[in-house]
């Protein structure tokens, strides 16, 4: 049933990437529990605009959990407290009247804050450019069926391909490591026949780029898989490690 709740928000405000930021407190009055978290922020922003204040900058696009653009750390939890949910799909019914909610941007050396909650996560694009693709011509749609892929393998690859590149794994990792993201991309392509020919070069280059971009090292804390909105499994990180060792010691890839 629809209810209205009142909340206290503590939101990270930072005018630009070079400036310092701080948490500012806002009162959110009469928030419908049918609203999404981002709609709640829209309401606050309308209020701020009417008051002549600067609205809170935050990233969003599809608002249906598929593009990977949105995301903020809510009370210490990337994308909020609900399992398998992006911030845009998080509903206010999961909060209670009188709650205080602390909202912070993704924090990692490899992700710079652009403004408030908006973060430059182009480091993930750079990782894709380093090898998260195939360059073989795979023909048209009918040619896709010419190479048989066992159902189980296809499922594993599709599970890995569900990654939307939101960066929550990096935000959740105590070491700000991007291993779940890279593990998902490496797994998705290494599992399929179209991705195999370039598997060794892909993993070698993606790991090199990941280190160069200043992400941390994985220590198997498992916070990433617990926070990932697409519930990407850490077996993908194990596969990344396997693929890396295989590429380094058993391929001619330098």
């Amino acid at each position: 049933m629809t209810k209205s709740i009142n909340l206290t928000l503590k939101v990270w405000r930072q005018p630009g990437s070079q400036s310092s930021g701080r948490l500012e407190t806002y009162e959110a009055r009469d928030i419908s529990t049918d609203m999404s978290f981002l709609e709640m922020l829209d309401v606050i922003n309308e209020q701020l605009t009417l008051e002549g204040a600067e609205p809170i900058a935050f990233d969003h696009d599809c608002r249906e959990g598929i593009c990977g653009t949105c995301g903020a750390v809510v009370n210490g939890r990337p994308h909020g407290p609900e399992k398998g949910t992006t911030l845009c799909q998080l509903h206010m019914r999961h909060f209670s009247d009188g709650d205080t909610i602390v909202i912070e941007p993704w924090r990692a050396r490899a992700f710079a804050v652009i403004k408030d909650l908006a973060v430059d996560s182009s480091a993930l694009d750079r990782l894709i450019q380093a090898g998260g693709y195939i360059s073989a011509s795979t023909g048209g749609a009918p040619d896709g069926n010419a190479i048989l892929v066992p159902q189980e393998t296809a499922e594993l690859a599709m599970d890995a391909a569900a990654c939307i590149g939101c960066g929550a794994c990096v935000a959740a990792c105590p070491n700000a490591s991007a291993m779940l993201f890279v593990g998902a991309k490496v797994s998705h392509l290494a599992l399929l026949p179209q991705g195999k020919p370039e598997a060794a070069r892909r993993v070698a280059q993606m790991v090199r780029e990941m280190d160069r971009l200043g992400f941390g090292n994985c220590t198997n804390e498992r916070e990433c898989e617990a926070e990932c909105p697409k519930e990407i499994n850490i077996t993908n990180i194990a596969r990344l490690n396997r693929e890396f060792l295989k590429a380094r010691f058993f391929s001619s890839e330098k």
Binding site: N75, E221, E223, E227
Partner: peptide, 20 residues
Amino acid sequence: YQNFTARPSRYAVTRSAGGR
């Protein structure tokens, strides 16, 4: 050392999702 410096500004609130 590297993992400590991989996050130069820390979160005000941290909470585990149950992985650690």
